Structure formats: structure tokens, C-alpha cells
Computed example of a mutant assay.
Amino acid sequence: MRQAVFIGGNPEDEPDLGALMKHIADGDERAFGQLYESVAGPVFGIVRAVVRDVAQSEEVTQEVLVEVWRHVADYRPERGSVMNWVLTVAHRRAVDRVRSVVASTAREERVAARERLPEFDVTQAEVEARQEREDVVRCLRTLTQLQRESITLAYYQGLTYREVAERLSASLGTVKTRMRDGLIRLRDCLGVTT
């Protein structure tokens, strides 16, 4: 079993992070435990400053430390200290988390907006339909009784010209004339152009 590598050899002193990294690269879990104890606080601090949410900061801190364990071979001492490398990883992870949360929130808001908005204005459609019905009823009142009966039987009850003629005891030609004249008057009353 390896001994912890401490600066000056005194267990009360801070460990030599560079030496710990070499042991961690060899799979030494105790060395990683010491590194963890040394860097977890600063990592959490930098992550918390970026992410702000405590629970997510704790989660990202764990992700960073797992990444350090898995990618210890990526550390290059000539590029800077172990602490700087770990904190750079932490900052990058924290920024990635914030971007992910922002993108996710934006997606959710777009989906929610699409689900909330009807494809057309339901209220406006209902008002227009009601107005059209009222206009038709008003214009039907301007027709003669015979025209109104013929159109009502044909269009609202679905009867054929022959069935309307039988129901009204009128000839087929008379019913067709009444309906044609009544429809022309309705068209004019409603302002429909052909």
C-alpha cells in the first residue's frame, strides 16, 4: 500500500497534488481520496459561482471529480498546476450545465407556447359563426312565407325539391322558383357577391 504524498512529509501539510496525480494515474484510490479532499471545496466554490443552484452545484462538482479520475492522464504539468487544471475542468462543466439548463428551458417554453396557442382564435370563430347565424335568421325573415318554408325544408331538414313540393302540396316547378327567388334575396340581404 502506498503512503500519501505530503509536502515536507508532514501529514498536517497540504499534499503535493502533482505527486498525487501520478499515483492516481496508476489507479491509487487513496491518492484520489486525498486529491478529492484538497480540491472538492474550491471546485464546489467555482461551480456554485457559475451554476448558483446548490443541488446542481453539488451534482456538477461530483461530475467534475469523476472526470478528473477518468481523465487524469490528460493533465499536463507543463501547462499549469493541478489545481488550475481541476478548476478549469470545473468551470467548463459549470458553464456547460448552465447552457444545458437554459437550452432546455427555452425548448420547454417553446413547446408550452405551441400547446397553449390554438391554431386559430376560437373566440373569434365562435363570434363570427354566431353573427353569421343571426344574419341568416334576419335575412330569412325578409322572405315570403313560401320562400322561407321551401328553403328551410331543403337546407335545414335536408329534403329534396320533390320532397319539399310534396310537403308543401305545390308543384315541383313552383318550389324550384320559390327557392331560386328566395336564395337570390338571401344573397342580396347577406351581401354575398358572386
Rank of each mutant, 00 (worst) to 15 (best):
V98G: 05
E128A: 13
E134H: 11
H71G: 11
T105F: 02
E58W: 00
G80Q: 05
L140S: 02
D121N: 15
V98H: 08
Q131N: 12
E134R: 11
L117V: 11
V111A: 14
N84E: 09
L153P: 01
A73V: 06
A94T: 03
V95T: 08
E128V: 08
A125G: 12
V136R: 14
R141C: 05
R79D: 11
A106G: 02
G80L: 03
T88V: 00
V86M: 08
A125V: 15
I151T: 03
E78A: 13
Q145Y: 01
V89R: 15
D74I: 00
L146I: 05
F120K: 07
G80Y: 01
V101Q: 09
R148M: 00
H91P: 00
R70W: 09
R138K: 09
E115I: 04
V89Q: 04
D135Y: 02
R107W: 07
T123P: 01
T144H: 00
A112F: 07
G80V: 04
R92F: 04
H91D: 00
N84A: 15
R76N: 13
E67Y: 10
R92M: 04
C139G: 04
V95P: 02
V89C: 04
R99N: 09
T144V: 00
Q124L: 14
V82W: 04
R70G: 07
S81G: 11
M83A: 14
E132P: 03
P77A: 15
D121T: 08
H91K: 14
F120S: 13
T61C: 10
L146H: 07
R79S: 13
V68I: 15
E115A: 12
A129W: 10
H71E: 11
E108N: 10
G80N: 04
R138E: 12
D74H: 08
